[in-house]
Each structure stands twice: as C-alpha cells, then as structure tokens.
Simulated assay, not measured.
Amino acid sequence: MKRTLDVLNQMVKDKIIESYAIGGAIAAYNYIEPTLTEDLDILVSFEHAASASGLMTLTPIVTYLASKGYTEFRKEGIVVSGWPVQFLPVANPLDAEALNEAIKIDIEISPSEGSVSAQVLTAEHIMATALAVGRPKDHIRLTQFIEMNAYDGTTFCEIIDRHELRAKWVAFCARFDIFDPYETTRKP
C-alpha cells in the first residue's frame, strides 16, 4: 500500500488532484476492527474535472496514471501498485466537508518499508457517509463504530444536522434497536 499512497501523494504534488482522503473500509480501519475490502476508496477534489456538459470526468487521473504505467482496471478501480483504487470525486456538501476536515496520519506499513503520510476521513464523516449511502455493509460499519464508541457523539450529531441526515439516523436507530446517542449529545 505504501507505493499506492506514494503515487497519490505525487498526484497532489503534480497538481493532478487538489487533495484526497482515504475513505471506506481502509479509513474505518483507523478507528474500528478491520473488515475485508478489495479496493482503496479515495475521495478526491480537482480543479478542472468538469467537462463542457458539467459532468465530472476522471480523464486527468486516468491519463496521468496511464503515463506511469497503471492501465489495469479491476472492478471500479485502477490498479496502482497492486491495489485497485476507486477515485470518488466530491459529489455533495457532505463529501466536500469530509475532505476538508480529513486528518493527516502516518500509516506504518512495515518495519522494512517504514511509513507514509496520507489523508484519512474522520470517524464521524465515515459514519455520516455510511448513513447517507445506507447499504447493508454501511449499516454494519455504523454499528461497529457505535459498539466500539469510536467516534465523538457531539461532532457526529452536528454533521448529521448540517447535512439533513437526522431522519435517516432515527430510522437507523429504530431499525437496529440502537439507543440514539443523539439525544444525550444534542445541544438544546
């Protein structure tokens, strides 16, 4: 993974992407028990990604990676040093906030390889995104965060309020018989 993250960091230096943050299962691994994943989800922002039609295009990323020899696709990702990387452009205000508030960490790869710096989404933004998307695996991830108390309840509640996810949260808590920590952390 070190080489994959080195490539991502170089993409920022080369101004192919403005910034990135690791999301999904790999980001969650920093806070809760690991889960099996086949790819690396990368939330990205980049300046000139919109086409004339207004649609986002990953052409600058694909072209850059192809010039470095990364042309294999596996599922939804481009394979970069053995890892399928799924580039997810910022698509909504929650994504933009999550990317802006991502934290920089040093990921220890191994004693021989050392560590590499990377941006990772906060626990609360991982949870809010999982709540917004709402797939079964997202519900499992939310439950893991709750059971491990691996998040700040006040911060999470502020995020779900800002992004109008309160109704989804109440429904999630009711469906899975989870005590709604929102009620104890919400400011009057």
Rank of each mutant, 00 (worst) to 15 (best):
M1G: 10
M1F: 12
R3M: 10
Q10K: 15
M11H: 08
V12W: 05
V12N: 06
K13N: 00
D14V: 08
D14N: 08
K15A: 10
K15Q: 15
I16T: 06
E18C: 12
S19E: 13
I22A: 11
G23M: 14
I26D: 04
P34S: 11
P34R: 06
L36E: 10
T37K: 03
T37E: 02
E38C: 04
L40S: 10
D41P: 10
I42G: 03
I42E: 02
L43F: 07
F46T: 13
F46I: 11
H48P: 04
A50H: 12
S51P: 01
L55S: 15
T57S: 15
L58H: 13
L58R: 14
I61M: 08
I61K: 13
V62Q: 14
V62A: 11
T63V: 12
L65Y: 01
K68M: 08
G69W: 11
G69R: 11
G69F: 06
Y70E: 01
E72S: 13
K75H: 14
K75A: 14
K75N: 15
E76C: 09
G77N: 12
G82A: 02
G82E: 02
L88F: 13
L88M: 15
L88H: 10
L88T: 07
P89V: 13
V90M: 03
V90S: 09
N92L: 02
N92V: 07
D95A: 03
A96G: 02
N100R: 07
K104V: 09
I107G: 01
S112E: 11
G114C: 12
S115N: 07
S117V: 00
A118I: 02
A118M: 07
A118F: 04
V120Y: 12
V120I: 11
L121E: 06
L121F: 00
I126T: 07
M127I: 10
T129P: 00
G134T: 07
R135Q: 00
P136T: 07
P136C: 01
K137H: 13
D138E: 01
D138M: 05
L142V: 03
L142Q: 06
I146D: 05
I146Q: 07
N149S: 14
N149G: 15
G153T: 11
T154K: 14
F156I: 01
I159G: 09
D161Q: 11
D161N: 12
H163L: 11
H163W: 08
H163P: 08
H163S: 00
E164L: 07
L165D: 02
K168A: 04
W169P: 01
W169I: 01
A171I: 09
F172R: 08
C173Q: 02
F176V: 03
I178K: 13
F179W: 07
D180M: 00
K187L: 09
P188F: 08
